[in-house]
Design a binder for these strands. Sequence first.
DNA 1: AAAATTTGACCTTT
DNA 2: AAAGGTCAAATTTT
Length: 283
Amino acid sequence: MKPEEIESDLRSIDGVVGQILGMFDNNLSILSSSSFPEIPYIPIGDMKCLVSWDSQKSEDRDKTVKNVTQLKTKRGCYKRRKNATTHTNIVSNPIDDGYAWRKYGQKSILKATHQRSYYRCTHKVDQGCEATKQVQMTEDNPPNYKITYNGHHTCKHLLRSQIILDYPDTNDTSIILNFETNGFIQNKQIDPSLSSTINKRKEGFPSLGLKHNQTSSSDHYLSVQVSKAPKDLEPVSMISHAMDQENMISTEVYLPTSGTHGYDEIDDLIDNIVFSELFKLCS
DNA sequence: AAAATTTGACCTTT
DNA sequence: AAAGGTCAAATTTT
């Protein structure tokens, strides 16, 4: 593998770690805000307020006269969630963060040469997901992107979370994950020599329209192997390398031999890597 | 045809 | 009042 490929892989892993940390951050904030009801918090799914306000607003526009009294009574609807969870990180590639975003605005920002872009979750309308992010290109070159995430995703992210992992109850520390890009999978084993369990999914995995393999339509595999890093690799925390075989992409990730990793953590990690690999495949 | 982006107006916050 | 954030009609892309 070329050094620059390895480097870019490491960078993407770095981003993934940032995202995982962000998720923990989010989850903690969610937990704390729900256990302390006195903190002002507007429920995410509460759309009634917005709907009635919107209709009022368009009437006002037609009359070109604003009804101040009604504005005041509806004003609560505009209140920003003061304690909404935010998390920012700097990233070299702003595209691949595993969520589906819809751009809804772009602004010039004072003392910034580049404009700031505003995104909201694609599933805001169909699932009421209120997650939002801003992307701001930094001044330095090569350019980086400061990404500010607001709120958390309440949507089902179709690509990422339908993957259910079963873990070996043996001392085997490696996990193999594989799935078809079309249709379903039922405990299919990709390589019997790898003594690992195979996951299965609850629901069908949506077709990704891979350009990668024209000859056969439905038998693509992605395998992710997570294992303890060999001693001589420390203190490198993680190394991932991916290789193409016929219609299989396989990625290996080493976790540090020291340090403790719960299955949830590894689950998240794999989730992210899987997504990121798929993303590469499709682009 | 449907979904995503662009862009200026509109709204809130500072 | 100025700056930042959001809406939504027009436009472009899929």
